[in-house]
């Protein structure tokens, strides 16, 4: 039973990270209907920035804040410089652009920081907070993810900018006709996504260690979580992330072993999608002829 609880909690912690990445994906998907395959590498690059700052002697939370801000501008720039040029291209062209971004970021990071694995600090104390089953880092990760979700909720619900972004996501033409600068809203979405991704990266790095390929598996789970929760629904993305995290951990521990856990977890997710094609919390839509 104790082992089981431990598996559930560490699954929740992993799930919180998938949830954050899924949230980042939802930010971009909502307004542009693109799934950004480079989201994981953007987060990885941000985490290296944080590592460099911490190594230079900047205190952890200061480096954290600076990384979140820097990532925002990186995301914004990527949208303005590259993505908007192909905004109207067919989906597959965009997929290729995102893959290009992915390999470029991965390769440049490896070149600057080398491919040797690095230790990334956790801001949370080493001794467990809530009994022996939950490490402080795991509890902290869940807490941070919930705070991010709450902040996003407040931003979208109560600020004028948040409303403008929601309007843009729903109906770009109408938004333009209300004087909203739609192009900037999309760039802002990318900025926010990059910031959220950066947080996910900094939370996962103490667990998986820092290396240029650290996000590849996590991105896949993030995409799965977002699709499972309903790709246009931030709340669903978070729930999806938690479900995927726990599912993956329990599968690995009790059913198929670590060798095949990725495979089985993915098969299960696809199974869910076959029966519920818009995800658990996604809006169903009607095709018009």
């Amino acid at each position: 039973m104790e082992a089981f609880l431990h598996q559930v909690f560490s699954g929740l912690a992993n799930g919180a990270i998938y949830a954050s990445l899924a949230l980042a994906l939802v930010m971009i998907y909502q307004s542009t209907h693109h799934i950004n395959f480079a989201q994981g590498e953007m987060a990885m690059f941000s985490t290296y920035l944080a590592w460099a700052m911490i190594n230079a002697g900047i205190p952890y939370w200061m480096a954290f804040a600076l990384t979140v801000i820097a990532s925002f501008f990186i995301g914004l720039t990527i949208e303005r410089v590259i993505v908007r040029r192909v905004a109207d291209a067919p989906v597959l062209t965009l997929v290729v652009v995102f893959i290009a971004l992915l390999v470029i970021l991965n390769s440049i990071t490896g070149w600057i920081f080398t491919y040797t694995i690095k230790v990334f600090p956790s801001p949370f104390p080493e001794q467990p907070l809530f009994g022996p089953y939950v490490s402080s880092h795991e509890a902290g990760v869940v807490g941070v993810s919930l705070i991010v979700l709450l902040l996003l909720f407040l931003f979208f619900r109560f600020t004028s900018l948040g409303l403008a972004m929601r309007a843009t996501a729903e109906n770009a033409v109408s938004s333009r006709l209300s004087g909203i600068r739609v192009g900037w809203m999309l760039a802002l979405g990318w900025g926010l996504a990059a910031s959220i991704g950066a947080i996910a990266g900094m939370m996962v790095a103490p667990i998986v260690y820092l290396d240029p390929n650290m996000m590849s598996g996590i991105l896949l789970y993030g995409i799965a979580a977002a699709l499972m929760g309903g790709i246009d629904n931030p709340f669903g993305a978070v729930v999806g992330g938690l479900i995927v995290g726990v599912l993956e951990n329990l599968m690995g521990a009790y059913v198929v072993g670590t060798e095949l856990k990725l495979t089985v977890a993915l098969m299960l997710i696809i199974g869910v999608l076959i029966f519920k094609p818009t995800g658990l919390f996604g809006r169903s839509f009607v095709t018009r002829v």
Partner: peptide, 12 residues
Amino acid sequence: HVPDGRGTFLNL
């Protein structure tokens, strides 16, 4: 501009 089809933000 009140566009054709009204351009309502249905989810807001």
